[in-house]
């Protein structure tokens, strides 16, 4: 067989008896997996649109265009516009240091970057309350100088940044570690300087992973609920983000309006996953 060019896909190769499942067992397992996914993931997703349109398209559009919804949308966009670039710069810097150099305590640093994943979002809000709230460590000084962080936009931005710190870094670190340092070293030997090495050599190699990291942290930034809920103060039209607006409408029994706003966030999630699929295709074709 040596030199034969016949290509077998892995599944086509004849396997010994007992080394795969009987087709009936296979279909049973597939059915069970699909049933579980339908009950836990698909039905909730579908229900958002069904509930949102239950009272008709008119109510749906009204819910999305009333002033409170628009101001929540605006605040959500502002918060994401600050939090995502900040964490992108952090993620690139952290990945550069971790993947291109050797130093002690690297694994510990990676664990620290992961820390926000393990902390409850409510605690993420609480820590900023303890720092900047009226009874917080800096509270008296802030109020003397007329600076408001809690129950205002800066607090919401800070809590959102905390929750989304790891995403870009976590996407880039394994990618850049796998790529090694040869290309950058070659560029450096040929005379390229710091930024031009990054822009011309590193960035083209990591752009798809970076894009997915940015898109995912954007989805999390726009959708964050627990942390923002602690620090926002829920002032309608002022410190309400889209997820908080969903909550308020839901608690006021305006279910259709609540699900209408929620459907925007579902679309955000779906777009995020479409981008992920594109990124995976692009990076596997390279």
């Amino acid at each position: 067989m040596a030199g034969a060019v016949t290509v077998f896909s892995k599944e086509d190769v004849k396997r010994p008896k007992h080394s795969t499942e009987h087709p009936v067992v296979q279909w049973l397992l597939i059915g069970l997996a699909l049933l579980f996914l339908a009950l836990v993931v698909l039905l909730p997703l579908a229900s958002v649109f069904v509930e949102a349109l239950r009272k008709g398209v008119g109510v749906y559009i009204d819910a999305l265009t009333e002033p409170d919804a628009l101001s929540a949308l605006k605040l959500t966009l502002i918060v994401a516009l600050i939090a995502v670039p900040a964490n992108t710069i952090f993620g690139v810097a952290a990945a550069w240091a971790i993947s291109k150099f050797k130093f002690r305590g690297k694994n510990f640093l990676i664990t620290l970057i992961d820390l926000p994943f393990a902390v409850s979002p409510v605690i993420a809000g609480l820590i900023y309350m303890l720092m900047f709230g009226a009874q917080g460590f800096f509270g008296p000084w802030l109020s003397d100088n007329g600076i408001q962080i809690m129950f205002a936009v800066p607090g919401i931005v800070l809590a959102t940044i905390f929750v989304t710190v790891p995403f870009v870094a976590r996407e880039l670190i394994p990618l850049m570690q796998a790529q090694g340092v040869q290309e950058e070293e070659a560029a450096s030997v040929l005379g390229a300087k710091g930024w031009s090495i990054f822009w011309r050599v590193t960035l083209p190699n990591i752009k798809w992973g970076l894009l997915y990291g940015v898109i995912l942290s954007n989805a999390r930034a726009m959708g964050e609920f627990g942390a923002v809920s602690v620090v926002s103060g829920h002032i309608r039209g002022q410190t309400n983000t889209l997820p908080l607006h969903v909550e308020i409408l839901y608690n006021e029994y305006q279910f259709s309006a609540s699900f209408a706003v929620a459907s925007l966030l579902v679309m955000l999630a779906v777009v995020t996953l479409i981008v992920k699929a594109i990124v995976e295709r692009k990076s596997s074709s390279h």
Binding site: E51, P121, G223, F225, V246, E247, Y250, F259, V266, A269
Partner: peptide
């Protein structure tokens, strides 16, 4: 579909 819970805001999952 498996990734939906990563990308979907938790409050939306909650009400749904």
């Amino acid at each position: 579909l498996v990734d939906i819970p990563f990308a979907l805001p938790t409050a939306v999952a909650g009400i749904a």
